[in-house]
């Protein structure tokens, strides 16, 4: 690293990148916050008020949306982890055919989320291939209603399908940093498969697990497109409700309150992650 010449020029060079991001993200957050209090309102009068905030907290519909989005975010991220972790472990060591397998797994990473949603809704419809296969195997007697179901299974399946490779890539690289001698040493000391898994792999891969979980949670929590295509009739996800409130009902101030709630949740989760990461890795 060059340590000399720490000058203001360095900060100037940051402007095109960091400055650009700060300008756009910052201004949109700023507008969201001011508008949630009725200031800088685009729909006519501009006046400070906390009425919109009060209204949201008395509104069961918005609360339902928040809880629903939280649930989908949590279940999608945990669900993806459960699938991705064993595969990542398996792929850790090279072997015949594993390269091919790895590129097969990567395909959904390059399939846009909306396309992924469409691919999956084709399969999980009432007489879609999944239901027909389960019927043929005698596992179920009547087709399951998975599309636009009340619980949101359809959305979760799509999130898992789409994001599995993403989580896998991050997990793989954190598993790759675990040295083989650590594991050999543990085995020689008589550690069984389970204790190797839970005492070595999981703790050492924890930073990767946390990052992938956080990114997936944020994606699924703030998701608009997949929820609007495969989500239940009620409740709409919070991002969907926000967009409809703004563009369909033209109540931008109320939408801004929802926007602030989404931002705060996201920030809180990210903060929680950084604390957890510090705790796990034991460093500051």
């Amino acid at each position: 690293m060059e340590r000399k010449n720490v000058s203001s020029i360095d900060y100037l060079l940051l402007i095109p990148g960091v400055g650009f991001i700060l300008l756009f993200i910052g201004s949109s957050i700023f507008i969201t916050i001011t508008q949630s209090f009725g200031v800088l309102s685009v729909t006519g009068k501009s006046q400070f008020t906390i009425e919109n905030w009060k209204a949201i907290f008395h509104d069961k519909e918005s609360l339902d949306s928040i809880l629903f989005s939280l649930k989908i975010g949590l279940l999608s991220s945990v669900g993806t982890l459960l699938f991705a972790f064993p595969i990542a472990l398996f792929l850790r060591k090279g072997g015949a055919g594993k390269r091919f397998l790895a590129s097969l797994i990567k395909i959904p990473l390059f399939i846009p989320a909306l396309v992924a949603a469409f691919l999956i809704i084709n399969l999980i419809s009432y007489h879609g291939i999944v239901n027909e296969a389960l019927l043929a195997l005698g596992i179920i007697k009547k087709p399951l209603r998975m599309l636009n179901d009340k619980f949101g299974w359809g959305v979760i399946v799509i999130q898992v399908w789409k994001n599995l490779p993403f989580v896998l890539l991050i997990l793989s690289s954190s598993l790759a940093s675990i040295r083989d001698d650590t594991i050999d040493a543990a085995r020689n000391l008589g550690a069984g498969t389970f204790s190797v898994l839970f005492r070595i792999y999981v703790p050492l891969a924890m930073p990767g697990i946390l990052v992938s979980m956080i990114l997936m949670f944020i994606k699924a929590f703030g998701d608009f497109a997949i929820m609007s295509v495969a989500g239940p009739t009620y409740p709409p996800s919070i991002a969907l409700r926000m967009r409809n409130t703004a563009t369909l009902f033209q109540e931008w101030d109320k939408a801004a309150v929802l926007g602030v709630i989404i931002i705060l949740t996201t920030l809180f989760i990210t903060w929680l992650y950084s604390r957890l990461a510090e705790f796990v890795t034991g460093r500051k």
């Binding site: 419809s125 009432y126 007489h127 879609g128 009739t233």
Partner: peptide, 17 residues
């Protein structure tokens, strides 16, 4: 069955649901 759009009703009928 409450469907999610006008077209969705028709699609579900085509699918035998």
């Amino acid at each position: 069955t409450i469907t999610v759009s006008n077209n969705d009703s028709i699609i579900r009928m085509n699918g035998g649901e």
